Amino acid sequence: MKITAIRATPINLPIEAPYWWSFGWLPGSSRCVVEVETDEGITGLGEAASWQACAIIEQRLAPLLIGHNAHDIAGAELVCLPSWRGVSSNTDFAAIRAFAAIETALWDIKGKATGLPLYDLLGGAVRKEIAFADYFGFRQKKNGKGGELTPEAVADYCVSLKESFGTTIFEGKLCTKDPEPSIEALRLMRRKLGPEAVIRIDSNMAYSLTEARRIAARIEELDIRNWEEPCVTFEEMAALRRHTAIPFSGHNVDFQKAVALGVPDAFVTDVNVHGGIGRTVRFIGACEAMGIDFWCYSANTGIGSAAYLHLCAAFSHIREPNQSLFRMQPHDVVEEGVFAPVNNMVAVPEGPGLGVTLSKDKLAFCHKLFVEEGPYTQHHDPEEPGRYKRLPLR
């Protein structure tokens, strides 16, 4: 089976109402949907986390792969990423992440050609229902959605998720410049949701070590399941560890440093970061060997989300709930999306490959948003117009 064409389409994937994170107001993400066609009529689907991957795929990688055996995934990697070494690398990260979308599509092709779901290609399923957290944060109001701009409103929003969808696992932002509103929201959530609710927080590296120590002392009693990126560096997390028992997670995949320092306790990444499903599998195995947790992060279309679901189905070491913006995403590019947790769980797609079907109409709609709106900036702070935000904030 030969690769005959590779298409990369930039899209905008908005969320229903912008939320505040440490860089400003986040309106959604601009991504890249990849279609790999073959001479046997099978098309595989992939997703890159940045719209900028489209040019890399079409101009650099696609010409190298036309005519290549679609089943030869390892060979495709050698052709596209000849300098790639090991589980982590300081080589061309843009090319690595762009190739990951193609590599995912090749796994999708393999599944469709054999009639097997991706989890079977990875060794079989240990579970078929996958846990996800529902997201919360301070949100602007847009088209009748959002508007949770006070701690009380954030807590009430989480209560409404529990009442409507059975949500008991929550993850959200603790990254306001003044941490007091975020801390108060957590206090109200714990009081209103009860002791059984799982609450994880994400600071997106917003705080200095000094500020993070102060925050840790005030939220320790709230039984926080995990604190993602309270500070910028692993070294700062290691210093913070002496002041709190709250587990930490991070996106930076510096595995050797994490093992040496003993932090973070978990990596939260996606297939793009590692260069594809095959590399992600190896990374998960390394995490298991060293007792470091692993889960997947949010903001994908149904294509990337399906890849997460199959990985979680196949590997028992993914023990903690994944992140999810599902509830906040009004659009998707697959017929089966948007996935939405019920009682915290999402079923693994059972079709061959990724188990999802690209909707040409939905793809065209999200591409139209990209053309009309331009790529989204995730670093817009109205208090500092024209400035590209750097961290820490204080």
Score class of each variant (00 low, 15 high):
residue 162 K to F: 01
residue 232 V to Q: 09
residue 309 L to S: 12
residue 336 E to A: 06
residue 324 S to Q: 04
residue 85 R to C: 11
residue 362 K to Y: 10
residue 26 L to R: 12
residue 242 R to F: 12
residue 127 R to K: 15
residue 288 E to C: 09
residue 252 N to Q: 07
residue 104 T to D: 06
residue 372 E to W: 07
residue 294 F to C: 12
residue 389 K to E: 11
residue 76 A to H: 11
residue 1 M to W: 06
residue 72 D to F: 04
residue 199 I to R: 00
residue 281 V to N: 05
residue 129 E to P: 02
residue 371 V to L: 15
residue 160 S to V: 03
residue 365 F to R: 03
residue 113 A to P: 00
residue 194 G to V: 04
residue 311 L to N: 02
residue 387 R to D: 02
residue 163 E to Q: 13
residue 307 A to H: 01
residue 384 E to G: 01
residue 265 D to L: 11
residue 102 I to R: 05
residue 78 L to G: 12
residue 133 A to W: 03
residue 96 I to A: 01
residue 174 L to E: 07
residue 92 D to L: 04
residue 359 S to T: 05
residue 226 N to A: 12
residue 191 R to G: 00
residue 64 L to P: 01
residue 41 G to W: 09
residue 343 N to V: 03
residue 351 G to K: 01
residue 391 L to C: 04
residue 198 V to S: 14
residue 309 L to G: 08
residue 362 K to P: 06
residue 264 P to E: 06
residue 254 D to N: 15
residue 163 E to I: 04
residue 312 C to L: 12
residue 86 G to V: 13
residue 338 V to Y: 03
residue 233 T to P: 11
residue 132 F to W: 04
residue 116 L to H: 06
residue 282 R to M: 13
residue 247 P to Y: 10
residue 371 V to I: 14
residue 291 G to Y: 09
residue 259 V to E: 11
residue 21 W to V: 07
residue 85 R to M: 14
residue 183 I to G: 03
residue 151 P to Y: 06
residue 276 G to W: 11
residue 235 E to L: 07
residue 7 R to D: 13
residue 392 P to T: 03
residue 239 A to S: 09
residue 127 R to C: 08
residue 242 R to H: 15
residue 329 Q to L: 06
residue 1 M to P: 10
residue 64 L to N: 00
residue 62 A to C: 11
residue 289 A to Q: 14
residue 1 M to A: 13
residue 308 Y to L: 01
residue 112 K to H: 04
residue 227 W to E: 05
residue 183 I to K: 07
residue 194 G to H: 07
residue 303 I to Q: 01
residue 54 C to Y: 01
residue 373 E to H: 09
residue 384 E to I: 06
